[in-house]
Amino acid sequence: MGEKYELTIDLNALNHLGLNLYSNVPSVLSEIIANAWDADSKNVEITTSSEEIRISDDGCGMTTDELNEKFLTVGHQRRKDIRGNLPLKFKRKDMGRKGIGKLSI
């Protein structure tokens, strides 16, 4: 597994971050499900145990480069990207807004 993953915080995120942004589990789960929606998922599965919450979906996924450049860049402004090359079936409007929901995790 030679891929390298790197979290980057863009200065744009500083304009949006605040105390208690995600203060409870339902808010965190809502952010994760919104990410699945934006990835064109039809199904999201949440399983829990006493030690973890596991979430999986059937969205379009990302390459290692896309993961690093987009998802792991906090504050990435997704609406500036051209999404026309993605094979999106449902043509939904994005739920994500600020590019910082991933911090809820």
Score class of each variant (00 low, 15 high):
residue 83 R to Q: 05
residue 23 S to C: 03
residue 22 Y to E: 00
residue 90 F to P: 02
residue 20 N to C: 06
residue 73 T to R: 07
residue 58 D to S: 11
residue 87 P to S: 10
residue 30 S to E: 04
residue 76 H to M: 02
residue 32 I to M: 07
residue 2 G to Y: 04
residue 29 L to C: 02
residue 73 T to Q: 05
residue 5 Y to W: 10
residue 29 L to N: 01
residue 65 D to Q: 08
residue 85 N to S: 09
residue 59 G to C: 08
residue 82 I to T: 07
residue 7 L to Q: 04
residue 47 T to F: 07
residue 82 I to S: 10
residue 58 D to N: 14
residue 76 H to A: 07
residue 27 S to D: 14
residue 83 R to M: 10
residue 24 N to T: 10
residue 60 C to G: 08
residue 105 I to C: 15
residue 29 L to Q: 02
residue 99 G to D: 07
residue 43 N to A: 13
residue 25 V to I: 12
residue 61 G to I: 01
residue 72 L to D: 02
residue 47 T to M: 06
residue 88 L to W: 11
residue 86 L to N: 04
residue 70 K to L: 04
residue 104 S to Y: 14
residue 49 S to P: 03
residue 19 L to A: 15
residue 76 H to I: 00
residue 67 L to I: 06
residue 52 E to M: 12
residue 88 L to I: 10
residue 99 G to M: 08
residue 105 I to R: 15
residue 69 E to R: 06
residue 72 L to Q: 02
residue 95 M to E: 14
residue 47 T to H: 10
residue 90 F to N: 13
residue 90 F to K: 09
residue 96 G to A: 05
residue 18 G to L: 07
residue 50 S to G: 08
residue 101 G to C: 06
residue 54 R to E: 12
residue 91 K to T: 08
residue 89 K to F: 11
residue 63 T to W: 14
residue 75 G to D: 01
residue 13 A to V: 03
residue 105 I to Q: 15
residue 89 K to P: 03
residue 65 D to N: 08
residue 71 F to D: 01
residue 3 E to A: 04
residue 36 A to T: 03
residue 99 G to A: 11
residue 8 T to G: 00
residue 27 S to M: 10
residue 56 S to C: 03
residue 56 S to L: 07
residue 82 I to W: 07
residue 26 P to S: 03
residue 52 E to G: 05
residue 5 Y to S: 01
residue 101 G to P: 09
residue 76 H to D: 03
residue 13 A to H: 04
residue 99 G to V: 10
residue 24 N to L: 02
residue 53 I to R: 09
residue 83 R to S: 09
residue 15 N to C: 06
residue 60 C to F: 11
residue 47 T to G: 08
residue 11 L to C: 01
residue 89 K to C: 08
residue 41 S to D: 13
residue 18 G to V: 06
residue 38 D to E: 09
residue 26 P to C: 03
residue 5 Y to L: 06
residue 56 S to H: 05
residue 101 G to I: 06
residue 1 M to G: 08
residue 29 L to K: 01
residue 54 R to S: 15
residue 9 I to S: 00
residue 80 K to R: 05
residue 7 L to V: 07
residue 93 K to F: 15
residue 67 L to T: 12
residue 64 T to V: 10
residue 47 T to Q: 12
residue 98 K to Q: 14
residue 9 I to T: 06
residue 25 V to N: 02
residue 79 R to I: 04
residue 28 V to Q: 03
residue 102 K to T: 13
residue 87 P to V: 07
residue 9 I to E: 01
residue 46 I to K: 08
residue 65 D to P: 00
residue 15 N to L: 13
residue 82 I to P: 02
residue 52 E to K: 15
residue 8 T to R: 04
residue 105 I to S: 14
residue 37 W to S: 11
residue 102 K to R: 15
residue 93 K to S: 15
residue 93 K to P: 11
residue 79 R to Q: 04
residue 89 K to R: 12
residue 85 N to H: 12
residue 21 L to F: 10
residue 56 S to A: 11
residue 18 G to M: 09
residue 105 I to E: 15
residue 14 L to W: 12
residue 96 G to T: 05
residue 61 G to H: 05
residue 54 R to W: 09
residue 77 Q to C: 00
residue 38 D to N: 13
residue 31 E to V: 01
residue 93 K to H: 15
residue 45 E to G: 14
residue 33 I to A: 13
residue 71 F to Q: 02
residue 84 G to A: 05
residue 1 M to I: 03
residue 72 L to Y: 06
residue 53 I to W: 09
residue 30 S to N: 10
